[in-house]
Structure formats: structure tokens, C-alpha cells
């Protein structure tokens, strides 16, 4: 990989707490697989998109560092534990700082990172501290998805203005979520050339998803 190539960093923050056990976690695995297939079929995504997976349950862990699509291997995911969203946001800030290149006179910056957060429950740790750390240290286009009735969209709204909600955490909804992530990654690069700090345009959310105002 060229040190001078612009990359589109994409971070998936996935809730793998106990409530995701069973059908939901299996649907997430299938979703990641589908996402990869979709992105590998798109030349622009294939040349520029780099994907990372951060999971969180009782703690947060970057299970896949920022990796180009061609070399990405699907992570082993197992659900269990609590929902340390704050720790995940803090870790995300660290990862962006370490992995994403900013423009300088001698370095070509990456595209602004895209972050997708998927959670089905309320955080169990100090999530506000995580938001503070993220806001202080990095900027990214963040899209959060509250999966099912137990997720707390107000917490997600504190992280990003871009929050969608799915009614339940079914495999069908999760599958549609990952298809939407794929479309968002493809579409995002078309709307990224903007004034510094400007947001991105996202495709309409899948049917049955609600944009949280």
C-alpha cells in the first residue's frame, strides 16, 4: 500500500454484549460478510476503503485494525457481557489518532473517517467520558444505529446527529443495516469534497428504519 494514497477509513463499532447472543450476533457476522462482498465489487471502495472492527461488551477491543478490503478477514465474534460504549468511544479515538493520516505539507491526508456504531442496549459504563475523549481528540463522520427497543437513542444522539433506529434486532434488520453501511461507504466519497468540517450526505436509511430527530 502506498504511503501517499488517500484511504477512506471505515470503523465499525459493534455491540457484542450478552443481549446480542444468538440470532443477532450471527446476523452481524453475516452482515460483515455481505458488507465485504459488496465493497469488493466496487472498484472505488476496493481501492480506497480500509475497514476496522472495534467490539465492545464489558470492555472494548479493536479486533481488526484498519485493513484494506482485499486483505480483510472476518473477525470471530462471540456475544456476552455488558455494554461498555464509553470504552469503545475512547478506543475509537485512540485508533483514529494512531491509524488515520491527516493532511500536512508532506503527507496526503486520508478521507475523513466514517464510523458506524451498532448497539442494542443502554451503555453500562461512563459513556459521557468516552464522548469527551472522542470529541477532544478526533473528528469523524459518525452514524449510529439503535438496534431494537432496548437501545437508547438519546445516548447515541449525544455522540452524533446521525442516528437511525431499527424496531427490532432481527437478522433481517441487521442485514439491511449492513447493506446500508455498504451503500453509505460507496456514496460517502462522492460527497466528501466539502469545506473543512462539513458533514456528509448519507443514503436514505433502509425501509423500517427511523431517523432519530
Amino acid at each position: 500500500m502506498s504511503d501517499f494514497m488517500r484511504r477512506l477509513p471505515v470503523y465499525l463499532l459493534l455491540d457484542i454484549s450478552g443481549s446480542m447472543a444468538g440470532e443477532p450476533i450471527e446476523a452481524v457476522k453475516v452482515g460483515i460478510s455481505t458488507l465485504l462482498t459488496e465493497l469488493r465489487g466496487d472498484p472505488q471502495a476496493l481501492e480506497t476503503a480500509f475497514l476496522s472492527v472495534i467490539t465492545f461488551n464489558s470492555s472494548a477491543r479493536q479486533v481488526i485494525p484498519l485493513t484494506e478490503i482485499m486483505l480483510f478477514r472476518e473477525p470471530m465474534l462471540q456475544a456476552g457481557g455488558a455494554t461498555a460504549l464509553g470504552a469503545a468511544l475512547s478506543l475509537l479515538a485512540d485508533c483514529i489518532k494512531a491509524e488515520v493520516r491527516r493532511s500536512t505539507d508532506t503527507q496526503k491526508g486520508d478521507w475523513k473517517p466514517l464510523v458506524f456504531i451498532l448497539t442494542d442496549g443502554a451503555p453500562t459504563d461512563d459513556w459521557k467520558a468516552g464522548i469527551d475523549i472522542l470529541n477532544r481528540s478526533s473528528t469523524a463522520n459518525i452514524i449510529a444505529c439503535a438496534a431494537g427497543a432496548n437501545a437508547d437513542p438519546t445516548v447515541l444522539k449525544a455522540i452524533t446527529p446521525n442516528v437511525v433506529m431499527m424496531n427490532n434486532c432481527s437478522s433481517g434488520d441487521l442485514s439491511r443495516f449492513f447493506a446500508w453501511v455498504s451503500t453509505s461507504v460507496k456514496v460517502s466519497s462522492k460527497s466528501l469534497d466539502s469545506k473543512p468540517g462539513a458533514g456528509i450526505e448519507l443514503p436514505p436509511p433502509p425501509q423500517g428504519f427511523v431517523i432519530v430527530p
Partner: peptide, 14 residues
């Protein structure tokens, strides 16, 4: 004119 990230720039209309 470059922002922090690629593709961020300024325009004549600003």
C-alpha cells in the same frame, strides 16, 4: 487549501 482530511477544500464562492 487543505483541511485535516483529503477532499476538504475551499471554494471561490466563500
Amino acid at each position: 487549501d487543505k483541511g485535516n482530511y483529503a477532499g476538504e477544500t475551499d471554494f471561490l464562492l466563500n
